[in-house]
Write a protein that binds this DNA or RNA. Structure first.
Lengths: 136, 136
DNA sequence: CGCCGATCTGGACTTTGTCTAATATTCGGA
DNA sequence: TCCGAATATTAGACAAAGTCCAGATCGGCG
């Protein structure tokens, strides 16, 4: 799959999101790179040429994408949230020193022995984060 | 084990931490409750009577406790970090709506099938967070 | 073309956390 | 017990991420 700006409109529509210029740019930033980006990084990318999209819009849009299931939130760094265009089940590898974040395919990972949930609760998601450090 | 302020001095010393009044109060807040507290909450608890401990000290002290392995950091909420006085291996259950955070004993949980780490990397920790929501 | 709801915007604001330079406390030794 | 050095604490200014709002703008449709 190759992502273009034209693709994005369809992708947004299929998730029940009105495709505006700004939303297409933001989606394109995330999907064309297939990387974990923070709101700051998205802003920087989208505004490389001339300033085009405001901070408020970037935050609003990312929140909208999140609600509509277009992206996923990854909380590994206390100082900022990352947004992940990969919504298929997977886990994360976080390099503590460099801040580099990468995916771990969930296909072969098995988590067993979790206790039953408290009554009246449903699982919204299971986040598994492997924190690694360069050997010193 | 029953925690008293007097206990705390020994606990701190055993972790190579100089036991000062403020540090004892902060340690006592965490250990006597055995709960996950944010820096804000620690501040509020420690300063209930009259203002006794400054913001800077609370943050400095929590960071020190972290370095010395006295507490653990739990990153589940993008807006604040929680500190966990339980350093034995365990996982976390996070109630998304209420923000309530509780422990899952690691004893019976098995995680298998993780891919090998990139060369020159060591695992610093594995965080498993089960995000749950009340059935609506 | 003009309307109307949806979207975008700048900028003020909040919250969490950091930094700094001055002050205070603690600890070990005599 | 007293002293000096090292360590710890403090208030308050600052920084960064994120939220909020009221007004401006857009874009599709009649």
């Amino acid at each position: 799959m190759h992502y273009t700006r034209d693709n994005m409109a369809g992708l947004l529509r299929s998730h029940d999101i009105n495709p505006t210029h700004q939303r297409i740019e933001i989606a394109y930033a995330l999907f064309s790179r297939q990387e974990h980006l923070s709101a700051d990084q998205v802003m920087a990318i989208v505004n490389t040429r001339h300033s085009e999209t405001s901070k408020a819009t970037v935050y609003n849009t990312l929140k909208l994408f999140l609600e509509k299931g277009l992206v996923r939130e990854v909380i590994v760094d206390p100082s900022k949230v990352f947004f992940d265009p990969n919504t298929s089940p997977h886990h994360h590898l976080y390099e503590v020193d460099s801040g580099k974040l990468s995916d771990i395919d969930a296909e072969h990972v098995v988590i067993s022995g979790l206790p039953p949930l408290p009554a009246g609760m449903v699982t919204e998601g299971i986040d598994l984060i492997v924190r690694v450090r360069r050997t010193s």
